[in-house]
Design a protein around this nucleic acid. Structure first.
Lengths: 192, 192
DNA sequence: CCAATTCTGGACAGCAATGTCCATAACAGG
DNA sequence: CCTGTTATGGACATTGCTGTCCAGAATTGG
């Protein structure tokens, strides 16, 4: 009976994610979101609630994409090469086009201290990333490419933090060459 | 002839710096600043201009304090121990009280992409930090505590980025123990 | 045709923020 | 005392944002 939706919910959610990603939480306005998503006021509020709820959902969507990316690179039997490829892919993303960084890392800095819900969501998002690194490192230990004495969890946390380091430098205008150099230095702990 | 100022310009500037440091640029309001600084509207605008100008000056003041801190730790003949002590001091700061991070790193993420002046200022602030690390590394090479084949500049850039990594993780609620573990892992490249 | 639901956009209330203007008071030196 | 400067805070104009309400149009199934 009802008139069907004229937009795809996930499509416009992805658009909202892009806007928050580019401009940050505070600097993004509902009007900006409306125009980018191409919806009327009522449709937006009816579908997603207020700005906070929309941001939460957009962040969740980002994290789900990030999870998929992590799984693709670190999923099964990829070992150290998976880690290197993940870093290379992130550097490509960070140095191409607008310097929008990573919505998770950006939000850790801008939003986490003022919003416990977001902080919680980000912790679980980063944990997932850590687990990805840990499983790749386990694989590397099994292959013998890193020594069994390695503290896998500590190294996985370190690698996750390195993505944060890349984001900060990229946002401040570091070139792709500088990011590559940084990544090389950071990953040098993997081959002693 | 004139009535003298009743406040110390630098005192209130330091207060403004604290407020921006704690809440970020966007989330800080002029009213909040006025109250923290304890001045009337007119005095504030007359003395510092608008919000943008005040932020710029506060950031400059932060950078001058950071420069002094870097010099104190990495200044002369401190070598690798100076680097370790600087990291320990930063970890103490990042894990005590409010998770305000570092005004420079925070601004790299929140402000740099939208404000070229700030980005420029931050680049020079980070460069200063890099030079501090580089001079400590030069000292370490001279002492023989690191090998002469080290790429000092690349390592100095890497160390600067590690401060960024610590800030991101700290802002997202990492414990002091986690930050210490991260720092240990990050600095392990210094003693092969 | 009818009913149910959605889309769209105008209008608006409420609020907060920025920055200006102004009147008044306080304080220094000549 | 007088003048020049500063401090203080009330009032205000302007702007922008959020979220609600409403009315009219569109589109589906029965």
């Amino acid at each position: 009976m009802p008139r069907p939706r004229e937009f795809d919910r996930d499509d416009v959610l992805l658009t909202a994610m892009e806007v928050f990603w580019t401009h940050g939480y505070e600097a993004t306005t509902m009007t900006q979101l409306r125009h980018a998503m191409g919806l009327g006021r009522q449709s937006l509020y009816d579908t997603f609630g207020d700005k906070d709820a929309l941001f939460n959902e957009a962040l969740g969507r980002y994290i789900s994409l990030n999870d998929a990316d992590v799984d693709a690179h670190l999923g099964k039997n990829q070992g150290l090469d998976g880690i290197r490829r993940l870093f290379d892919a992130r550097i490509d993303m960070l140095s191409s086009g607008a310097r929008r960084g990573c919505l998770m890392m950006n939000s850790c800095v801008e939003v986490s201290p003022h919003n416990p819900d977001v902080a919680q969501r980000l912790r679980s998002g980063l944990k997932r990333m850590e687990r990805g690194f840990a499983s790749a490192l386990d694989q590397a230990v099994a292959e013998g490419t890193v020594t069994p004495s390695t503290d896998v969890d500590a190294l996985a946390f370190y690698l996750t933090a390195q993505i944060g380091a890349l984001v900060v430098m990229a946002k401040n205008g570091a070139t792709k060459g500088e990011l590559t150099q940084l990544s090389t230095q950071a990953l040098s702990v993997l081959h002693p």
